[in-house]
Nucleic acid binder design. Structure first.
Lengths: 247, 247
DNA sequence: TGCCTTTGTGTCAAAAGTACACTTTGCGAA
DNA sequence: TTCGCAAAGTGTACTTTTGACACAAAGGCA
């Protein structure tokens, strides 16, 4: 193929995933360490990979998620496309690409996705694109490789917006959970405190959680009732969302 | 450059724009007719173009918008990336690409944007990528080239969501406008009726419109007061948005 | 038995939402 | 000149939602 004019430029497409998890106390993101390269300080990055020829974008993101976590068929939502020509401008990122990629100067556009998973369902696996993976507290993420910090921030903002229009938690919590855990989850996504009684009242009105006949055991305080999501109502609400500017 | 493995596939990146306008009565989208090709029935499409090497994604979308409408420096928001390998599967789309593109089988990923413009500010220009352009009623759009219909639907959904969290109208209406026009605008975006008195009350409480000392003239009914946006408050609200699930 | 920790619950006042109908203004036609 | 038409503009009563706030109950442990 011949490059005839400036329209005819080709690009690589990659996908990066912001995988959120919840440890019952704080929100975390699954980050990887890139393959080590001599002379390049280690830096954390979002898991991601170039997409294959026969894949669509969603499939590529699903593959990255599966390879890293083993999880399949779960909620994955697009954050957007990121693709500055100067996306790779940190010297260490350049060095890393030169060591690892065959065509280190090729322009790359990445399509980012985010997802919410239950941290306890599996152990992160090292994979073809990651030396190791670990759950990092959202509040501790200050710098990432390439433009991944910007992507992470967009994903977090999307998650915060989502909480106002859709139920959240189904994928982040185990099957049975306590109201405090749900409460904590909302607080850690939003980053501020929520009144306990008001939270409970609002949540119950949504009709998506229901009480089980089971209590916590062995805790040195009043044991909490367990709850589960009512999947049917949850899905209905996911679908129609809840408006409230209110027209 | 050599293609060594399936990761190394290159793609074309294009951008497509969903340009919304408002004719004081209904919502419209600026669509183009593709360059005519012998044997391919005309079909409308979103304006768009392949991106240039030195451009980032936002710049490319801005360029398409400017070339078509002359408008610059206005709100453009990303809808997302679309890129099925089978994106181009209608026979007429294939024929068209074969006639027009040098490499008609190259896989194309498109990054879509939407924007809101005041229809009266300019005349759409034919341009390098469009034989002609015209404003089509949102309700009349039933079929578009490639996957543009899907893109259009995503953009419209984004616009509807936006209306619940941010003020809308600044770019869609002229500098002075009547309350009914604003009201109609909201109704045509949302696709349903809104109570006149309640709409006015809510809108006024936002504090983003203010009454001018000027009335409509020459209308065969009670003349309407003109209003304008209070740009300062509008921008503040744009920035912080309004939540209302209410945590 | 007393202490510590977390759960779980109710009320009241303020704000917001919803539903609803009649008067006003200006033009134009009879 | 007056009558009719069409759209503008305005208020109220009722219901629902929000937001602020404090204390008793349960269970482990020392």
């Amino acid at each position: 193929m011949q490059i005839k004019n400036k329209h005819q430029i080709n690009h690589r497409i990659s996908t990066d995933c912001v995988i959120f998890g919840f440890d019952f106390n704080q929100l975390r993101v699954l980050l990887i360490e890139r393959q080590p390269v001599e002379g390049v300080p280690q830096m954390m990055a979002l898991p991601g990979d170039l997409i294959f020829e026969e894949e669509n974008l969603d499939m590529a993101a699903g593959r990255v998620l599966k390879e890293l976590t083993g999880l399949e068929d779960i909620f994955l939502e697009q954050v957007g496309a990121f693709g500055d020509p100067n996306r790779v401008n940190k010297p260490n990122d350049k060095k890393w690409l030169q060591a690892v990629r065959q065509d280190p100067d090729a322009r790359v556009i990445t399509v980012a996705y985010y997802t919410l998973v239950n941290m306890n369902d599996y152990e992160p696996q090292p994979s073809s694109f990651a030396k190791s993976a670990s759950w990092i507290l959202v509040d501790d993420i200050t710098e990432l490789a390439f433009d991944h910090f910007e992507i992470f921030q967009s994903a977090l903002k999307k998650l915060k917006d989502k909480i106002n229009t859709q139920p959240i938690g189904f994928n982040l919590l185990p099957e049975k959970f306590t109201f405090s855990q749900l409460h904590k989850l909302y607080e850690s996504i939003l980053g501020n405190e929520l009144d306990k009684r008001n939270f409970r009242r609002k949540m119950l009105k949504l009709n998506i959680v229901e009480s089980l006949d089971e209590k916590q055991e062995g805790v040195p305080h009043k044991p909490s009732q367990y709850f589960k999501f009512n999947e049917e109502n949850y899905l209905i609400l996911l679908d129609k969302g809840f408006n409230n500017f209110g027209f």
